[in-house]
């Protein structure tokens, strides 16, 4: 393809206008927005505080002693970043792509498929960051986040959201109907239960340990748990790398596929 003779009139940040559009929609449906705060809180209160009474404290590799709730809370932070960003990037995108035809209208303007993909991604990450900030504040209130590193929790949520939103959006471009989304649920639920979320990795059978370490949510949990307990380690860097690569591949695929679907 020859170099464009004319610069795209909106420059590089055209995607922000799609973020604005989503903001306008959610400003009215703020109830829907608020429910996003509740999910991780409910898990934390039921599983964390409830089971804590039955389970002894943990001793981390560096010798720190933490309660079961302190152990589970960061996992809920990671899981809610996954669920929240997946919701917008899969159901949300599918609805606008197949039913609302929002993107058909958007692409009649100077915006390009890449602007659509980036705009939706940025929007879902903004949401993930806001929910994560509220959750971390709640954790601090309950005395579950003693480390200053916990302030980076929202940033970790963005990295996790990036991975899942990118991959989810890419997969959504192949979805034919709502039934196909069951495949995503099928992948997400076991991940939620078995990514060292509710019990530590060394309690898994040896054979299962490597499998757990392959899943993206495991790396999300490692990242969040490191930050909220203050047990910073090299494995967190690996986690960031894993999630960043996953998100970038997803985003690239989503861009191509959206272009192929919409610019026929």
């Amino acid at each position: 393809m020859a170099a464009p003779a004319v610069r795209p009139p909106l420059g590089r940040f055209a995607a922000q206008h799609l973020v604005e559009r989503n903001y306008l929609v959610y400003r009215r449906d703020w109830v829907v927005f608020v429910t996003g705060f509740l999910e991780p809180l409910l898990y934390l209160l039921s599983i964390g505080l409830g089971i804590q009474q039955l389970v002894d404290d943990f001793v981390l590799p560096d010798g720190t002693r933490i309660s079961y709730t302190e152990f589970v809370a960061p996992a809920m932070l990671a899981a809610s970043a996954m669920n929240g960003s997946l919701f917008d990037a899969t159901f949300g995108v599918f609805f606008k792509l197949k039913y609302e035809k929002v993107y058909d209208a958007v692409l009649a303007t100077p915006l390009r498929p890449v602007d659509v993909a980036v705009g939706e991604l940025v929007w879902s990450l903004l949401r993930a960051a806001i929910y994560a900030a509220a959750f971390v504040a709640f954790m601090a209130l309950l005395g579950l986040a003693e480390s200053w590193w916990a302030l980076l929790g929202p940033l970790a949520a963005v990295v996790i959201g990036y991975a899942f939103a990118g991959a989810g959006m890419a997969l959504t471009t192949w979805m034919r109907s709502w039934q196909d989304f069951d495949f995503i649920t099928l992948a997400v639920l076991p991940m939620f239960l078995f990514s060292a979320t509710f019990f530590p990795l060394d309690r898994y059978p040896d054979a299962a340990q490597w499998l757990v370490q392959l899943t993206p949510l495991y790396h999300g949990v490692v990242l969040c748990r490191g930050l909220t307990t203050g047990a910073i380690g090299l494995e967190m860097l690996v986690a960031v790398g894993y999630l960043a690569v996953m998100g970038t591949i997803g985003l690239a695929v989503a861009c191509r596929r959206l272009g192929a679907l919409l610019l026929r």
Partner: peptide, 19 residues
């Protein structure tokens, strides 16, 4: 093919199906 955004910025489009 090359200058889609620049062209679209100067067109008005009223599609057959309401979008």
């Amino acid at each position: 093919t090359d200058d889609g955004p620049a062209i679209r910025s100067r067109l008005g489009v009223c599609p057959q199906e309401d979008t």
